[in-house]
Every structure is written in C-alpha cells, then in structure tokens.
Write a protein that binds this DNA or RNA. Structure first.
Lengths: 236, 236
DNA sequence: TAGATTGTTAATCGATTAACAATC
DNA sequence: TAGATTGTTAATCGATTAACAATC
C-alpha cells in the first residue's frame, strides 16, 4: 500500500500544533463516555482505570480504548493503567467542558424551561446568559434562576456578551426563521432542540438534539433484540 | 479481493426475510433526517424529493442517499426522484415511529417534567403510560396530563401494560440502582437521560441521551471552525 | 430521442481489530 | 525476573465515494 510522503508527521509535529483539531465522531462519543466512567470510578475511590476495564464497560475492543487515549495525549502506565484524574482533566479540556461557554436560550416552552433548570450545564461550563421567548405572555416570568426576556432584548445581549452559541428550543415551525435571525446576529453555533433540519450558511455549526432519532434508535435496537431472541428460539 | 461464497444473497432472499434488521448507526441517523426533511418538503407541497436535493441539504454524497433509500426499500423514479409520501411512510415504519410504544417515565425533575410535557412524543408513537418519582413531595402533583405516582405503583403498571421501555430521568447517583430495579421488573430498553453510563445485562438496550456529549460535540466543532478561520487568515 | 435521475458494482477511504513489541 | 498492561504497526472490515449502466 502507498502512503503519502510525510504522512508520518501527523503524529509528530502537526499534532502538537493543533492537538485535537479533528476527532472523528464515534471517537468523540467514546471520549465523552470515558469521561463519565472516570468520574464514577473516581467517586468510588479508584485512582486508576485500565483499558481493559473501560473496554468491558463500554463493550468495545480494548485496543480501541488505548488508541483513543493516545489520540488525545492521555498516557498510561504499564501494569497500572490510566490515572482517573488525568482522564477526567484531559477529557474535560478536550471536550471543552472546562472552559466557559456563553449561550442564549431561545424559546421557553417545555424543553426550554427544562434546559434552564438543568443543573448539569454549569458543571460542564455552559453559562446561559439569558433566556428569551417571543410570546409576551411568557416574558417576565421566572424559570429557575432566569427571568424570561422579550426577543427585542436578544440582539443587545448577544452583542454585549459576545455570545457565539444559541440554544434553540422553539416550535418546529419557528425554528428556521429564528436560526436565520440568530446567524445574522453573529451566532456561530446552534444547539437545536426543534425536530427539524436547519439550513444554515457554511461555517455555522448546528448540532441537532433530535429526540425522535433517540426514540427511533431505541426502538430499532429493541426490535432487533427481539428478533434475535425469536430466531434463537426457532433454531433451538 | 476474495468474497465469501453466497455473500451476494444478502441483497436477495436474506433481505426480504428480515428487511431492516441491522441498520448501521450513521445510516439510521441519516434516515431520521430524511424523514424530517421529507415532512417539511411535504408541507411545502413538494410531492417528490431527489437524492441530489437531499444530499445538498444534509451535506452528504448523493450516492449515499440512494444507497440508504435502496437499503430500506424506498424506490425512486428516474427523472422524478423519491415520493415524499413514500419516504415519510416507509421511514416511519422502519424507524418504528408509526407503531405505538408504551413507556414508563421515572423521575419527574427538570428533564423528566419537560419530557412529560413534550407534545412531540405522541406524534412519534410513544405513549407514556405513567410517571413516577421516589420523592413523596412530588407524588400526586400534576405535570401536563399526568399525575406523578409513587414508585411502589411502578411494578404493577409495568406488569399490567407489559411496558418494555423506561425513560430514566433521575439524578445520576440514583440512575444505576433504578436501572437494575427496572431490568428486574422486565424492562427491556432504557432511554437514559442521566449523565452516567449504565451497566446492564446483555440483551437490555440502553440509549444514552447525553447532553454533555451534545455540548462537547458543539464546542468541538465551533473550536475547529474558529481554528480553520485563523489558519485561513494567517495563510492569506 | 436526449437528458435527468435512479440503482448497482467496483474502488477508496477511514475506523476497528489483531498481532506484537515496549515498559514498568 | 515474570507478568500485566500500555503503545504501535499491520491487517481487516465496513462505510463512503466514484464510475457507470439502467430507466423513464
């Protein structure tokens, strides 16, 4: 097999310059899970975690765990494993959970209110600067620590706090229009909770938090499991 | 390259027996997005959708769209495209959104209450049979159309309605114990909203709805985008 | 018919796994 | 030292893309 000349550099100089510029999606998902597991392990008093135990908990190959660790610069000790603390610290840095991120929240209905009340965000460095709703009946109501502001105020909040991230929790039929508006106001990333695929200009990041997909995924696996069971029974 | 004898059958007889038994995850995610886009297109009065337009909206290769469609049995017409209605119907069937699924919801805090109020679930065929909370202060309170029940009632509800799915929205430190309990009661799938990796026996399906991962993903892309911009500016 | 679009087979690419060397 | 565990290189596997034939 042929290799491009210099490809080897990727694991050398190049990576030190931009250490984790492009982590593949499946890898990123595993990293987030290692983080969760390491936190639990730490709480249980385990100072070290081996690739084998991580791989068993997640049901993946142990080599993959080591590859993942190496890819983000977490180094382990032979016969000991990886330091729980190092896993947590390094991953929080890489996943961006340790730095503060300012966001505005748009739409204070069911999902929006729940997100406003969700205590976990603080822990992950997300600071919701303010919450907005287009419905005047909701304006000035309190939700958790927030007072809902009218959309007119949104522009100045984005400017003042230089907010780059918007959490979009409006109904599906209002989401696209609101996304367009946010992008015009300088928002660079939209965390979309509306069950709709947003069209945004190149360079704008959208993450769809699609509950229908979650449900579909769950049902799909459940179904497959049941089919395997039936198959097994038939074959037996 | 060598092929196992008979591998060709996969696209023949085998597939007709179990039509969509094992859809790869990335494919499943795209299918859910096609579904969303088709619904919007239908609302806009478009009776057909081409693989090219779908691919442009999602930023994927058009061949991939056609492969996905073929894999689930959606057939298009040359010069016309795929019928919006067929996409919607077939995908709802495949994603399990058209069949009813009964679930119990455990934990009526911020996330739990939001899920109870979320009107979208009905549309996707999810029926929450009842909602429970271990906190007696919450029992008998109303949330949306539900009255929160004490955990003692959970067992009989699972048995009576033969509930296979549980939505777990309890705090992280209670999640594992609750999951164990649910599995003992016969629950086969857990939709987990607690930020923790659950350990469950083989054969039990867990889908983690991990908001921290969503946030990490968003921050990761945002960061990468900004780095590219800086790189571009420097190079220019 | 010509052209647009689907559908399929072969090539490529990237992620996972296997094998094994390095290290404490 | 022996053994457990990390780290890395090569092989495999599966998903994506390219090329092109089929069809309306």
């Amino acid at each position: 097999m042929m290799r491009k000349a210099g490809a080897k550099r990727v694991s050398g100089e190049d990576r030190t310059r931009i250490p984790w510029s492009n982590i593949p999606k499946p890898s990123l998902e595993r990293l987030a899970q290692y983080h969760q597991i390491a936190i639990r392990a730490g709480e249980d008093g385990n100072e070290n975690l081996s690739s084998v135990s991580l791989s068993e908990i997640l049901g993946v190959d142990e080599t993959l765990v080591r590859k993942d660790m190496a890819s983000v610069g977490i180094v382990g000790k032979p016969r000991v494993g990886y330091s729980t603390g190092q896993i947590i610290n390094k991953l929080e840095e890489i996943l961006g959970l340790s730095q503060h991120t300012d966001a505005v929240l748009i739409g204070c209905g069911g999902i929006g209110s729940a997100l406003l009340r969700y205590p976990g965000f603080r822990k992950y460095g997300l600071r919701i600067s303010a919450a907005f709703d287009a419905d005047f009946a909701k304006v000035n109501q309190r939700v958790g620590d927030y007072v809902i502001l009218p959309m007119e105020k949104c522009r100045s909040v984005i400017n003042t706090f230089r907010v780059k991230v918007a959490i979009l929790a409006v109904p599906a039929d209002a989401a696209q229009e609101m996304a367009d508006w946010l992008v015009r106001r300088g928002v660079q990333a939209i965390w979309n909770f509306a069950p709709i695929h947003l069209r945004v200009p190149a360079g704008i990041v959208v993450r769809n938090e699609n509950l229908a997909l979650g449900l579909a995924d769950l049902i799909h696996h459940l179904r497959r499991n049941n089919m395997e069971k039936e198959d097994g029974a038939r074959t037996r």
